[in-house]
Simulated scan of single mutants.
Amino acid sequence: MTDNDSLVVVVRAWREHDRLLVRVLTGSKGACGRVFADIDSASAHIRALLTELLGPAETNR
């Protein structure tokens, strides 16, 4: 992996009105942020981001 292949992922979670909110912020490769109201959706998004870093050869590990 080179510096150009890196990705910054920041996960922030908090409780609001008796529910859990998860904000996922990404830097490099086009910064963006998404907020999820459930753990499964947030986890799937984080998994997809990290899978991008693996590339096709390592995806099936």
Rank of each mutant, 00 (worst) to 15 (best):
A42S: 06
E52L: 15
S43M: 05
M1I: 14
M1H: 13
R19S: 06
H17K: 14
R61Q: 11
R12F: 09
R19A: 07
I46S: 00
D40C: 04
A48N: 07
L7K: 10
S6N: 12
R34I: 07
D18I: 05
G30F: 03
R23M: 09
G27K: 08
K29M: 06
R23P: 00
G55V: 05
V8R: 13
G27F: 05
E16Q: 05
E16L: 12
D18V: 03
E58T: 15
A57K: 09
A57C: 13
T2A: 11
A48S: 12
G33Y: 04
G55F: 05
L54G: 11
T59R: 11
R19C: 02
L53Y: 01
L21A: 06
A57E: 11
H17S: 09
C32K: 15
L54A: 07
A42W: 00
L21I: 10
I46K: 07
A31M: 08
E16W: 03
V9C: 14
A31C: 08
T26D: 13
L54N: 10
E16S: 11
V24I: 14
A57I: 03
L25V: 05
A13G: 05
G27R: 04
V11H: 01
R34G: 06
N60L: 12
S43D: 01
D40A: 12
E58K: 12
F36V: 05
A57L: 13
D38Q: 01
L49R: 01
S43Y: 05
E58V: 11
D3T: 13
H17L: 08
T59A: 14
D3R: 12
F36N: 02
V24Y: 00
L7I: 13
D40G: 01
V22N: 04
H17E: 12
S6V: 08
L49H: 00
R61V: 10
V22D: 01
L7A: 01
V10T: 14
F36Y: 04
E52M: 12
M1C: 10
A42P: 00
V8H: 12
L53Q: 09
D5C: 12
R34L: 12
T2D: 14
L50E: 12
P56D: 09
A37E: 15
N4P: 00
C32M: 15
V11S: 04
L7F: 03
R12C: 07
